[in-house]
Design a protein around this nucleic acid. Structure first.
Lengths: 137, 137
DNA sequence: CACCGATACCTGAGTGAGTCAAGTAATCTC
DNA sequence: GAGATTACTTGACTCACTCAGGTATCGGTG
């Protein structure tokens, strides 16, 4: 009959909802979709092949092709053929891409606005709880 | 130069990522998109008008029109004209819709698999931390 | 070396989500 | 009762995403 939702489950849902919405707004503020911003952010740690990106983003390789094509058209990433294996294209972020990616991070106010309300002790608590929940296995 | 991401921020990102992915899989398992499952879940608490749904789902009214149309075509929701104001359509979930919505909840293993690892004390801790982070203002 | 299977990526077709602008019908206001 | 407002729909469009099928390259086997 009535919904028997655990209050914690509802809170987590709201938290995730707010997080996603905030990220979407941050991306949109610099003219990107959330998926594009996400891909760009994955590249800030160094170049990736198309295939590696597909694995990391949990999506089809052809989807990566299109995302990268749109970002490349804006000069935010570059496709560099791998000299060792001419089948693979390595995707690297450009200087403009770095600027845009940093702009997204700056516009993404959720961590500072929301997580920033917690004290250092509380942040450590939260970190431990999340680690326990997310631990593999 | 190097990315100076706070470890907690990274954990929260991973948490949200895992949550979203799990919800998407649960919806897909019963043949729905995440957006459709989400709309259906909003209706389990009672009927809503199209406009109310648009506000709650943070999206355009015309998007709601399409989502509801697809769900209606599957017999999961029904559009009922409001007798008091013949402009508004109230959307109510059907018996089949309830069954599907419950199936999504059952397939959505994140709360039980992940949050279920926490002790009752830890769950209360997490609840308080999230409440503080999400508090309005 | 020639062949064959596997791999990495791309293309094309199709669906769904989402937005915006414009349209229709019903209500509200004076 | 005329005109503005509201609630929803429609049409056109972009993007994300998937799948099937195509091309080029690599790797191993004879």
């Amino acid at each position: 009959m009535t919904e028997v939702t655990d209050p914690l489950d509802q809170q987590v849902w709201n938290f995730v909802y707010a997080y996603d919405a905030a990220y979407g707004r941050a991306a949109q503020a610099v003219g990107l979709s959330a998926a594009q911003a996400c891909l760009l952010e994955h590249l800030t740690g160094g170049g990736r092949s198309m295939g590696e990106l597909a694995v990391e983003l949990l999506c089809d390789a052809s989807n990566v092709t299109q995302l990268v094509s749109r970002l490349e058209a804006r000069g935010l990433v570059a496709r560099v053929p791998d000299p060792a294996d001419r089948r693979v294209k390595r995707v690297s972020i450009t200087a403009a891409g770095h600027r845009v990616s940093h702009a997204v991070r700056r516009a993404f106010d959720f961590p500072s606005e929301r997580l920033g309300r917690l004290t250092e002790h509380e942040r450590r608590q939260l970190s431990e709880l999340l680690a326990k929940a997310l631990a593999p296995g």
